[in-house]
Amino acid sequence: MIERILILLLFLVGFSGILARKNIIKKIFGLTLINSAAVLLFVVEGSRVGSQAPIMEQGISQVVDPIPQALMLTAIVIGVCVTALALALAFRLYQAAGSFDIDEIRRRVHDES
């Protein structure tokens, strides 16, 4: 129970980062935190049956469900891709507007147009 509440708190930390921070880099890492929370939740769910790692060596029985782990492998890779692409876009935006602050960027774009 306590681990689930901690994962929910991790999700909320990432969400508040996206919502409340003005800095684009912090928003991107809030997204990363939400991704990590989802991954952790799935791994915790999959470990509800069984107790041992899903590596079938001699004498291993009652393994945890390996399917959520395999799914989360995909999710982690996609998360890395999204983060890298978002950081590249943020860098491009910094070159165009000279700031990572969204209010500042909006002001400068407004001034130019």
Binding site: I78, A84, A88, R92
Partner: peptide, 19 residues
């Protein structure tokens, strides 16, 4: 999944070198 990775790498490199 590897295609997604390929597209992400291509996009990142494209954005970074274009700028």
């Amino acid at each position: 999944e590897t295609i997604v990775l390929l597209v992400a790498v291509g996009g990142t490199i494209g954005i970074l070198t274009r700028s």
